[in-house]
């Protein structure tokens, strides 16, 4: 699929911001199912974007801006060619040993309920079948609700309350997989809905788990499916925090409002 993406993150402040420093994980890296044709990030302030690669293989841009400003916009624009590999990833940049992806974090640490759920759902199944079953079971068990949780919600809480957004679904999947000693990680990016929707309010989050003989495989419990060519993979990490598109701190800038606009369309499709 030839995807064209535009993602604008705009901040507006009641009182001017005096300085801001951010880390952006907004640049996809190529793998066998994902070819980057064109990609650029722009910040509407006088600032240099300094790139580096983090330990998860993500391309990170750091920038800082000083002065006095009422708004700040980070705009991302690009074109990517994707292929459906049934979720199987090849050619990703791997810097860390697999064992590290067994480590739970504050957001993923499972409680007994998640561990029992993971055992029950995967009982007498191969690793791959178990992970598929887990993907479906989480989808069935949780209600999608964009109001119920936020970026700091833990897997335990979302699971107990039975609702959340894609990020919560992914954290529960990761918590469960790791509790079964299957390496797993969080992935942030974008997903184009099958109905051809072009405008989105948020990016997407899913999970990858490591399956013997196959390698990393992408599972999306929010959609009860493996990732395919409608997915654009941007960053990964132990949890959402490691892969979040923007992490920043500012001084001044009281009364911040955030506006995110994402448009994603297929090249050649009707506009």
């Amino acid at each position: 699929m030839h995807l064209i993406l535009r993602h604008e993150t705009s901040y507006a402040y009641d009182a001017p911001a005096r300085s801001v420093i951010q880390l952006l994980r907004l640049t996809p890296r190529p793998h066998e199912g994902q070819h980057i044709r064109r990609w650029r990030i722009e910040v509407d302030r006088d600032a240099t974007l300094r790139p580096h690669e983090d330990c998860f293989g993500n391309l990170v841009h750091a920038f800082g801006a000083e002065g006095s400003f009422q708004t700040l916009t980070i705009a991302v624009e690009g074109e990517v060619q994707t292929e459906d590999t049934n979720g199987v990833l090849r050619g990703t940049i791997e810097r860390l040993p697999l064992g590290l992806y067994l480590r739970q974090t504050d957001l993923t640490t499972p409680d007994e309920a998640i561990c029992a759920f993971a055992m029950e759902v995967t009982k007498a199944k191969t690793t791959l079948d178990g992970l598929h079953a887990l993907t479906v079971a989480i989808h069935e068990r949780l209600r999608f609700d964009t109001q119920a949780t936020d970026a700091t919600t833990t897997a335990q809480r979302a699971f107990a309350e039975g609702h959340g957004v894609c990020q919560d679904f992914a954290h529960i999947f990761i918590a469960a997989a790791r509790s079964l000693k299957i390496p797993a990680r969080y992935v942030g990016g974008y997903m184009r809905h099958a109905d051809g929707t072009e405008d989105y309010e948020a990016g997407h989050g899913w999970a990858e788990a490591h399956v013997p003989d196959l390698g990393w495989v992408a599972f999306d419990p929010a959609n009860a499916a493996c990732a395919n060519d409608a997915y654009l993979r941007v960053a990964c990490g132990l949890d959402y925090l490691d892969a979040s598109p923007v992490r920043g701190v500012r001084t001044g800038g009281l009364g911040e409002t955030l506006d995110v606009r994402i448009s994603m369309r297929e090249a050649g499709a009707q506009q």
């Binding site: 330990c55 810097r95 860390l96």
Partner: peptide
């Protein structure tokens, strides 16, 4: 044993490389 290092929160993946 590998897991004693990698599962250990004192090991910081950010330092790798």
């Amino acid at each position: 044993p590998e897991e004693m290092i990698y599962a250990n929160p004192a090991f910081r993946p950010e330092m790798v490389g």
